[in-house]
Amino acid sequence: MEEAYQEGDVREEDLAVLAGYLQSLGQQNCSDKTISAYRRDCRHFLRFVAREGKQFPAEVDYRLLRRYSSYLAGLKYEKSSISRKLSAIRGLFRFCRMEGLVEHSPADSLFSPKVPRRLPAVLRPAEVEHFLESINEADPLGLRDRAIFELLYGSGLRSEEVVSLRLSDIDHEQEEVRVAGKGNKTRVVPVGEIAIYAVREYLEKGRPELLINNNGEKPNNTDILFLSARGNPLGTSDIRRRTTKYLRKAAVRTGTSSHVFRHCFATHLLEGGADLRAVQELLGHASISTTQRYTHVSGAHLRKVYEQSHPRAKRDRNPPG
């Protein structure tokens, strides 16, 4: 879908402005993933401006921005992708205004397409159990995978947070894990007894074997918690592949990603009676509205709570005579 970007299509001075904008995002503690996405989005926009024969930012007006939005829709981008791209452009023009390159931002009145609100996929507790039990812990990789998915589900971590964990981030005595989340914000999250046991089993029986790679040499990143078969740090793509493998093995519904365990963590906590604000802290969300999106509660559970809590939810079939 994304057109190949050719750097020669854009003026050097425009690329310099973009570099300054991206640097400012880094100073605001935006994640590397966000900065990378915004870099692609803004380059794509600058290429469009160049093709239109306009100079950025002086000759970019609202009508040109609207044409770009229509252009993206014509390329069959998802509404969520278009929304992100336009958000990146709004940020770019805010930066231009702060730097005195434009007096007013033409992007301020640019609206993003309305993105339909989708409920996140959630597995039932029994399905999560089947998934975890499908992992063969007879070898170091199995021990590693069990520890990874126990943390994903037991502590609600993101995949990128798990692969970034270091040995010192696990507090075995307090049963806690220190996590560097989005925007380099650090939070401390409890680790359940089952998850901490899985991590200990991996550290004692699995990781020492993975620490020595195929050449018999120790890798450089010896403080990284989870290692590959060759003793190197894992990437999120590794977890994605393992998720697909075990979903199929456990005959659990497909079409989900490793992020489903974060959804399960939050939803199952709420269904167990946890406070929404507490779940927000555990997930590391800056806004409670984000937590509400992740932590939808099943209709069946709501019905059960209603029937147990409201004095007139059920009619007394045997009233006293």
Score class of each variant (00 low, 15 high):
122 V>C: 10
122 V>R: 05
123 L>Q: 06
124 R>Q: 14
124 R>T: 13
125 P>W: 04
125 P>F: 08
125 P>Y: 01
126 A>W: 05
126 A>P: 08
127 E>L: 05
128 V>H: 04
128 V>S: 02
129 E>L: 07
130 H>M: 15
131 F>T: 13
133 E>C: 06
134 S>T: 07
135 I>L: 09
135 I>H: 09
136 N>R: 13
140 P>I: 12
140 P>C: 10
141 L>H: 05
142 G>W: 03
144 R>S: 07
146 R>A: 06
147 A>Y: 04
147 A>D: 08
148 I>A: 05
148 I>T: 03
153 Y>W: 05
153 Y>Q: 01
155 S>G: 04
155 S>W: 00
156 G>H: 00
158 R>P: 00
159 S>D: 03
159 S>K: 07
159 S>T: 09
160 E>M: 02
160 E>F: 00
163 V>L: 00
164 S>I: 01
164 S>G: 07
164 S>N: 04
165 L>E: 02
167 L>Q: 10
167 L>T: 04
167 L>M: 13
168 S>C: 08
168 S>V: 11
169 D>H: 06
171 D>R: 13
172 H>C: 10
173 E>F: 11
175 E>N: 13
175 E>W: 05
177 V>M: 03
178 R>Y: 04
178 R>W: 09
179 V>P: 00
183 G>S: 08
183 G>E: 02
185 K>F: 03
185 K>D: 06
186 T>W: 13
187 R>L: 08
189 V>Q: 04
191 V>I: 07
193 E>Y: 08
194 I>P: 01
194 I>V: 14
198 A>M: 09
201 E>H: 12
204 E>I: 13
208 P>N: 12
208 P>I: 08
212 I>P: 00
213 N>R: 14
213 N>T: 10
216 G>L: 11
217 E>G: 06
220 N>K: 15
221 N>Q: 15
221 N>K: 14
222 T>E: 14
224 I>E: 08
226 F>I: 02
